[in-house]
């Protein structure tokens, strides 16, 4: 596993973004679109564990950063789901991906043209609602009362900071409308077994779940 850089064209010009890569020049090449926001942290180790298994199964895989997230130097508030999708399409081209695996909210910004899977996809509106709820819970602890309606109206007018993520009004407006494309095969958590690791209060790992997801993807790519 090595860090790889890829050129990511953004509205302001092309910048360099990082990806974790298992690249041995093999014919099967999987682009993984990460989960979004706090779920990205909780799912990262699991995602990399799946990549290690795919490597042993003879499949190259690539986990790019979304611009504005992880190691990216770009400001998150200048990104939109649309620009994320364009970035993931460019990453797919750069790494010559043959398949895609989108994790959770990653399904909302996955490239359109590749065959592949959505693992436990989630609607944009549900992600927003939960992020806003997290903020309401935090505010209540601090003695302030905020409401879902008021925060959403503010978010759509001027942008909002949710759990440390500064999102533009445009970002929120786009995310709210996004649903996972029906084109890709959905892998439900029931198929993987156990509770989804994105639910965990603390990041965790689960070998059996990583085995199960890697097996589904590996068998699917080979067939």
């Amino acid at each position: 596993m090595t860090p790889a850089a890829w050129p990511c064209p953004l509205p302001g010009g092309t910048v360099e973004e990082y990806a974790l890569a298992f690249d041995s020049g093999r014919p099967s090449r999987l682009l993984i679109v990460p989960a979004l926001f706090d779920e990205a942290n909780r799912m990262r180790r699991f995602t990399v564990e799946v990549m290690r298994r795919l490597d042993l199964a003879g499949i190259d895989s690539f986990l790019p950063d979304l611009p504005g997230c992880n190691e990216s130097l770009q400001p998150l508030e200048q990104q939109t789901p649309q620009s994320w999708r364009a970035a993931m399409e460019d990453a797919a081209t750069h790494f010559a991906a043959t398949h895609v695996l989108a994790v959770r909210g990653g399904a909302l910004v996955a490239p359109d043209e590749l065959p592949g899977w959505h693992y436990a996809p989630v609607k944009g509106a549900n992600i927003l609602r939960q992020q806003i709820r997290g903020r309401i819970v935090a505010s209540r602890e601090a003695g302030a009362t905020e409401t879902q309606e008021h925060l959403m109206a503010t978010a759509l007018a001027t942008g909002i900071e949710l759990a440390g993520h500064r999102l533009s009004a445009e970002f929120v407006g786009q995310l709210q409308e996004l649903i996972p494309a029906a084109r890709l095969e959905v892998i439900l958590q029931e198929t993987i077994g156990g509770g989804g690791l994105w639910l965990r209060a603390e990041p965790d790992e689960d070998r059996a779940q990583a085995d199960a997801l890697a097996a589904i993807v590996a068998v699917g790519i080979r067939s």
């Binding site: 939960q130 709820r133 639910l199």
Partner: peptide, 11 residues
Amino acid sequence: LDSMAVAGLLT
């Protein structure tokens, strides 16, 4: 159980 975990629990 921080605020985001509580939000996840409720959802």
